[in-house]
Structures are given as C-alpha cells and as structure tokens.
C-alpha cells in the first residue's frame, strides 16, 4: 500500500525534527511552569520557594495584566478593520486590468513594509514622528504634535505603523483571492450589473473568505506577539499607554525581575493563544 513504511524508517525521518522542537519548544515551557509555581525574583535568588498557584492568583486579580490584555485587543480591533478596508481597496485597484508595469512596481513595493525588521520600524517611528524635527509634523503643515510623549497620540502612532506594515500583507492575500475568481464568471456578472458593490458582494467575496479568515487568525496571533516595534518606539509608554501584553510580561520578567510572576503571565497568555488556535482550527478546517 502507498505510504506504508516500517516504523523505524518513519522515525529516522521525523525523529530529529520532533526531538529538536521538543528540546527548544517544550522543555522551556515545562521549566516556565515550574518557575510560575515559585517565588522567583532575580534580585533575591536565595529565596526561591514553592508558593503553589499564588502567582496565578496574583495575575488573574492584577488589573495591569487585564488592562494590557484589553489594550492588545483594542489595538487589534482598531488596526485590523483599517488593514482590511485599505487592503481590499488596494487589492481591487491592482486587480483591474491594464497598467501592468506600474502595478508590478506597486506589488513589489508592497512587499517591502512586511519584510522590514520590526525593530527598525520602531526606530523609523522615533525619527519620523519626533515632535521637533520629525518629518510627519512637517508634512502635516508644520504641526506641533507631541506623538511619542502623549498617551493617546502614541497609541495612534502604533496603529499607524501596524497598519503601514501589515496592510500590504492583507492586500496581497486578498489579491490572491481575487485572481481565483474564474474570469468567465466575473465577465458574466459585469454584463449583468454595473454595480461594483454587487460584484464584490456576490461574486468575489466567496473567494476572499479563506484569505480573510487567515488574516484574522494571523493578525490576532501577531498582535498577541507584538513586541519589537513597540519596544523600540515607545517601550510601552508614556505611562503604560502602549504596554501590550508581550511588553508587560517582558517588563515584569526582565525589568522588575519577577520571573515567577512573569512566567505565570506567560503561561496564561499561552493558554489564551492555544484556545484561540483551537477555535481557528475548528472553524477553518471544518467549515471553509
């Protein structure tokens, strides 16, 4: 029968990868669980002691944890609709026939933002959004907006960069969906109606759905992971106004040195991620 091979052969092919990923992916998690059950502060290493679920209790009743979580979801809730709306617009423009050279050029430039080192995006933000000599205020007609030092403006700035970096991704995913629509169906629909909206809604949308689901899932995961760009741009500040969940955990673990509490936060974040991933596997692999 096709694909039936001795166990030993299978193991020799797949064993090294499983072992490798177990060592770097699972062993540390077990260690994090162990740490999370202890009082473990890097400044008081003589005093590492077992405290049961105390850290978890502290996290679950800690307002700053839930605020960071809420802030993360708020960022997702504001940036993602913008990315989808703009991405869809760009995809539709690129999908129209003609202007091949300019469109190839546009497609290539769309690749640039999403490949850019996240840390560099944050550094660019520092330079371009500086209140005094930043080019953004200049382009806004000599405005005197304090972007980095004001809680609300800093948040808007983070949204701006997230949208800048990931709208191209959404656009290219949706463009791939649009090219899946069979040409004759689109032609026939265009003879029936002049309304672009009708065509989008009834002809193109079904082909866009898998891509939209993918975007939703990946943007959710990536927003929970978001660290580099915000760290280099605002370090979570001013105050805690841009302290998203990964930044909070990093601060607690490496700047407040409370590894026990940070590990408990990390494990809870992991559980939230796994639940979300499970939901996605169910929804995507069963229904679409």
């Amino acid at each position: 029968m096709r694909g039936q091979v001795p166990r030993k052969t299978i193991f020799s092919f797949i064993g090294p990868a499983v072992l490798g990923l177990a060592i770097v992916g699972i062993a540390p998690l077990l260690y994090a669980i162990w740490t999370s059950l202890h009082f473990y502060n890097l400044t008081q290493l003589r005093r590492v002691e077992f405290i049961g679920l105390q850290n978890y209790w502290n996290v679950l009743t800690d307002e700053s944890f839930w605020q960071a979580m809420w802030r993360t979801l708020f960022l997702l809730g504001t940036a993602l609709p913008l990315q989808i709306a703009l991405g869809l617009g760009i995809a539709l423009v690129l999908h129209q026939p003609g202007l091949t050279l300019l469109k190839t050029l546009a497609r290539l430039s769309l690749v640039l933002p999403m490949a850019t080192t996240y840390a560099v995006v944050g550094l660019l933000g520092q330079v371009m959004f500086n209140q005094k000599f930043g080019v953004v205020n200049q382009l806004l007609g000599g405005a005197d907006i304090n972007w980095i030092g004001d809680p609300q403006n800093a948040f808007i700035m983070i949204i701006f960069w997230d949208v800048w970096q990931w709208t191209p991704f959404v656009a290219l995913v949706l463009l791939a969906g649009l090219t899946m629509v069979p040409g004759e169906i689109e032609e026939a629909a265009r003879l029936e109606t002049k309304s672009k909206w009708t065509i989008l809604r009834y002809v193109q949308l079904p082909f866009l759905l898998p891509g939209l689901v993918a975007v939703l899932i990946l943007r959710t995961a990536d927003t929970l992971k978001l660290f580099d760009m915000v760290f280099t741009l605002t370090r979570g500040g001013p105050g805690a106004s841009t302290e998203f969940i990964s930044l909070l955990i990093q601060r607690v673990g490496f700047r407040a040195f409370d590894q026990g509490l940070a590990s408990a936060q990390a494990i809870i974040l992991l559980i939230i991620t796994i639940v979300l991933a499970q939901i996605y596997i169910r929804v995507f692999y069963k229904e679409v």
């Binding site: 260690y31 994090a32 990390a266």
Partner: peptide, 24 residues
C-alpha cells in the same frame, strides 16, 4: 496531530519562551 503541533508553534508569543530560555 504532529502536523498541527509543528504549525501552532507559529502562534506562540516569543516572550513565553524568552523567560525560561533566559533562566536555562
């Protein structure tokens, strides 16, 4: 299951691993 395990690694926030990696 193995396939899903490989792929879901993509979802995990690096900070979750950074803490134990540092201590280890």
């Amino acid at each position: 299951d193995l396939w899903f395990w490989f792929i879901t690694n993509r979802m995990v926030s690096p900070i979750v691993l950074a803490l134990p990696f540092f201590l280890i």
